[in-house]
Amino acid sequence: MEKEILEIRWHGRGGQGAKTAALLFGEAALETGMYIQAFPEYGPERTGAPVSSYNRLSKKPIRIHSGIETPDIVLVLDPTLIGKVDVTAGLKDDGVIIVNTTKSPSEVRKMLGLKDSIKVYTVDAYGIALATIGRAIPNTPMLGSLIKATGILNFDHLLESVRKKLEVKFRGKGADIVDKNIQAIKKAYEETKGEE
């Protein structure tokens, strides 16, 4: 991580776990000794409505408390948000965008009219979630894609950290659901595509 503060924006729909993804990622980063922020778009959550959540990561204590307007990385958890929400708003010129879609990165680049300097990655997070978890929950797979695309954290560390958090979260609901989520993250890590 070269930048002093790395800023990430997650786009999803209420109920898809954009906030949880930001929290899981933030905690995993914290465990590597980084300073972090993880926060949802402030406001009441409404299922299905477009929502966003955010991360800041830094080696130094983070003091800034304003909203994130020029992210380094954008993740889009639902392909249908494209065109409805300005998912690339403020994305830095050397930024990265990762989209849950069955389309290819170059198709997404064209759809969004992205500058050449911006890197694009895609992953079929719905397909992966259905095949592993059995429900189209895109948030955990996207964690795998984020690591694949950016390498911000060590992948094994992320898996371990997320496993611990999910074990607490799904306490009493069986180890199965935790394993399936880990499977989904691994699969997404493998299947995330960039441009050649």
Partner: peptide, 10 residues
């Protein structure tokens, strides 16, 4: 409110 109450930090 929200700025701190709902933002996770170290």
């Amino acid at each position: 409110g929200f700025i701190l109450s709902h933002a996770m930090q170290r």
